[in-house]
């Protein structure tokens, strides 16, 4: 045991993933492909929201979807039924999040010359996906009314790393003790730059506002 020695590392655990994510982002920009990372808790309406968004944009842009699930393809089937768009299913093999390496593998399975927008439906979870940068151009978080307006306070990192917060299920606000203004304040306390957009994926209210934002984003990436 006389050969025991110490190697100093002094590096953040997330450093390698952040580097891979930056490389993926640069690659996507060079190809003119917009990758949108969609995060939320389970049951917030990610799949329904995405189906609405895809139906409004599918005649303008070539869209691909990557579904991250621990172990099922229910979401991929739902998206296909609702929009006709095929999804790639990424199984995370029990892991609670996607990292840049897994996202890259999904991207490498797409024909990027034939895609304008890739939507990545991350694992439904408010903790882990926030820590691992996927390499997406922008990230959005969906917060649904039944979850409560206090979520940005309880899961601060999730609301700090996203660019847009979609407040979903606003059609059921009368049945819940949910204050939209309080929710906005809570988001902005964590992330002053976040755009907050109230929507109802069920009846379509507010979806156009988000679709306009996304359309502009894609156009500006493509120059």
């Amino acid at each position: 045991m006389e050969d025991v020695r110490i190697i100093e590392i002094k590096a953040s655990v997330f450093e390698d993933n952040n580097k891979e994510a930056d490389e993926l982002r640069e690659y996507l920009r060079s190809k003119g492909v917009y990758l949108l990372n969609v995060m939320s808790s389970p049951g917030s309406g990610k799949t329904t929201t995405l189906s609405r968004v895809i139906n409004l944009l599918k005649d303008e842009f070539k869209i691909a979807v990557m579904e991250a699930d621990i172990d099922s393809d229910i979401d991929a089937k739902k998206i296909k039924e609702a929009t006709g768009v095929e999804s790639i299913q990424l199984h995370t093999g029990g892991m609670c999040h996607l990292d840049a390496g897994m996202t890259r593998q999904g991207i490498d399975n797409l024909d990027l010359n034939n895609v304008d927008l890739v939507i990545l439906e991350n694992v439904g979870n408010l903790v882990c996906p926030a820590e691992f940068d996927t390499g997406a151009i922008k990230s959005i978080t969906i917060l649904s009314v039944p979850e409560g307006a206090d979520k940005p306070l309880k899961y601060p990192l999730m609301y700090s790393v996203c660019d847009v917060v979609l407040v979903n299920k606003i059609d059921v606000i009368p049945y819940f003790d949910f204050d939209l203004e309080e929710c906005k304040r809570n988001v902005h306390m964590r992330n002053p730059n976040a755009l907050v957009m109230p929507i109802s994926a069920k009846n379509g209210d507010g979806i156009e506002v988000f679709v306009d934002w996304l359309r502009n984003e894609i156009h500006s990436l493509k120059g």
């Binding site: 190697i7 590392i9 390698d16 892991m95 609670c96 999040h97």
Partner: peptide, 24 residues
């Protein structure tokens, strides 16, 4: 579950550094 993902990242990184330094 969250911790497991972070543990895997650490093991990957440490294993790489160990291999670069020819550590047994």
């Amino acid at each position: 579950m969250h911790e497991l993902g972070v543990v895997f990242h650490i093991i990957k990184k440490v294993d790489k550094i160990a291999s670069e330094n020819k550590v047994e």
